[in-house]
Simulated assay, not measured.
Amino acid sequence: MATTAKQRRLARRLRQLRTRAGRTVEDAAAELGCKHPKISKIETSLAGVKPEEVRLLCRLYGAGDHTTESMVALARNAKTRGWYLGYHGVANPENIDFAELETDAVSVGNFEIDLVPGLLQTQDYSRAVFRTGLPRISDDDVEHRAELRATRQQRVSNGALSVWAIVTEATLVRAVGGRDVHSAQLARLVELAALPNVQFQVVPTRAGEHVSMGVPFSCFTFDDGSGAVAVDHLTGTLFLEEDVDVERYRLAFQHLCGTALSPQDSLALLRQYIEEGHSSWKPRS
């Protein structure tokens, strides 16, 4: 059976904690009273690890109370698939992994080049994106995927997930789904930007070059401060989980925050496109 995103994250975090503490595989094996190959298998998610074993290892590695409890909870639920498993037959495995990471995260920073981030999309906008990106997709699968995306959005609506979304100005111009769908989407962005757990910024075209040209990505942060990155491409999603990669994308996101208009000015620009866009869409007499 394939490992879950939780199992891989648990394995990675245990390896990171051990190496940061300057402990060897042999030290960890001695703490658990096992042979060192078991530790290697645990750290590569080839073998499971019990919650009480995680607690012992965290103590050996000098992890704080918060990190320890977070790791123990992760071990308890590592094999458990959540609500998203019901969409396994519709979405590909990468979609499921993405939903799992997002469900476990406490915050996400998302940069999109010319699309509204999935967590902020209306269902009609989502349907248009799916039909364009997957020309052979059936109407039923479009509906199921739109439903999956709407379910993911519930954590934003109820405040469980903090979202910091940065888009380029092209997002406000590109009429995905046509005039009515695009208009409703921009209006929805105004509503969502008013939520206390949502930050919305726009990188204006006049800003010129920026650090992430051509590379949309999502940065996930979990309750222990660790993270993961998802980078979309035409044939799927690339997941990056090593510290050096996560930190590189976090730094890129910080640069984008500085390049973008402030949330207040971004909202003003969004409203301007809503007001001026309607007149430009009117048919010429």
Score class of each variant (00 low, 15 high):
L57H: 10
P204F: 00
H233I: 06
V72F: 03
M71R: 08
C34G: 07
G227V: 03
T221D: 06
V90A: 15
R76H: 14
G62V: 10
I39S: 06
D139T: 11
M213D: 11
R174C: 09
Y273R: 03
R145H: 12
S183L: 11
P93I: 10
E147D: 15
V211K: 00
F98H: 10
M1C: 10
D97T: 04
E276P: 14
A230D: 07
L74E: 03
A73S: 09
S262D: 07
N110V: 15
L240M: 11
G86H: 06
L186V: 00
Y125T: 00
A29C: 12
T68H: 01
E147C: 12
E143A: 12
L56C: 00
R20L: 14
L172H: 00
L172S: 01
T221A: 05
D65S: 15
Q123F: 00
R206Q: 06
A2Q: 14
L192W: 07
G48T: 02
V90E: 15
F217M: 05
C34L: 01
E209W: 09
A5K: 10
A170K: 03
D232C: 09
A160L: 10
R20S: 05
I39N: 06
P283M: 07
H36P: 15
T19W: 06
Q121R: 05
L269I: 04
N95D: 14
A194R: 04
K282H: 13
L267S: 08
A105I: 08
L14G: 10
K50F: 12
A268W: 09
T151E: 15
A170C: 03
G48S: 11
L172C: 03
R131Y: 06
H88D: 13
L186A: 09
V129R: 00
I113M: 11
G133D: 01
P263N: 06
E112P: 13
R12L: 14
S138W: 10
G118H: 02
Q264I: 01
A75T: 04
